[in-house]
Simulated assay, not measured.
Amino acid sequence: MKIVNVRTDASVSAVPIAVNFQAAPGDKFSHLEQVYIQLVNNDGDKVGKPGVRSVVMINSGDDHNLPWYEAFIPAQK
């Protein structure tokens, strides 16, 4: 499972229910792919435990911008 690092400030210590993030260069995610979201502070230190989320593309980007995704808690079967 891929790990997505999401920058946060000191007020957030647990992965939110929904997280929007821009893909890093070279990253591409399948529709509803499950990933670990790891929060990191401005110094690059990990904050709290990673949370499993499913991702959907919310903006495909263009020649100058990478796609944006929303990560949310996956439905339980």
Rank of each mutant, 00 (worst) to 15 (best):
M1E: 02
M1R: 00
K2W: 09
I3N: 09
I3Y: 08
N5I: 00
R7W: 04
T8R: 07
D9N: 14
S11I: 15
S11M: 13
V15W: 03
V15I: 03
A18P: 07
V19G: 08
N20Q: 14
Q22H: 10
A23C: 05
G26F: 00
G26H: 03
D27H: 13
F29I: 12
S30G: 06
H31T: 12
H31D: 10
L32T: 04
L32W: 02
E33D: 12
Q34T: 08
Q34K: 13
Y36A: 06
Y36Q: 05
Y36I: 00
I37F: 12
I37T: 11
I37Q: 11
Q38N: 09
Q38P: 04
L39K: 00
V40C: 12
V40Y: 12
N41F: 03
N42A: 00
N42C: 00
N42T: 01
G44P: 00
G44W: 00
D45I: 00
K46I: 10
G48N: 03
G51T: 07
V52D: 00
V52M: 05
R53G: 05
V56L: 14
M57L: 14
M57F: 08
I58Q: 09
I58M: 07
I58R: 07
G61A: 12
H64I: 04
H64G: 03
N65Q: 11
N65H: 13
L66H: 10
L66E: 12
L66F: 12
P67I: 11
Y69G: 04
Y69I: 08
Y69C: 06
E70M: 15
E70K: 14
I73D: 14
Q76D: 15
K77W: 01
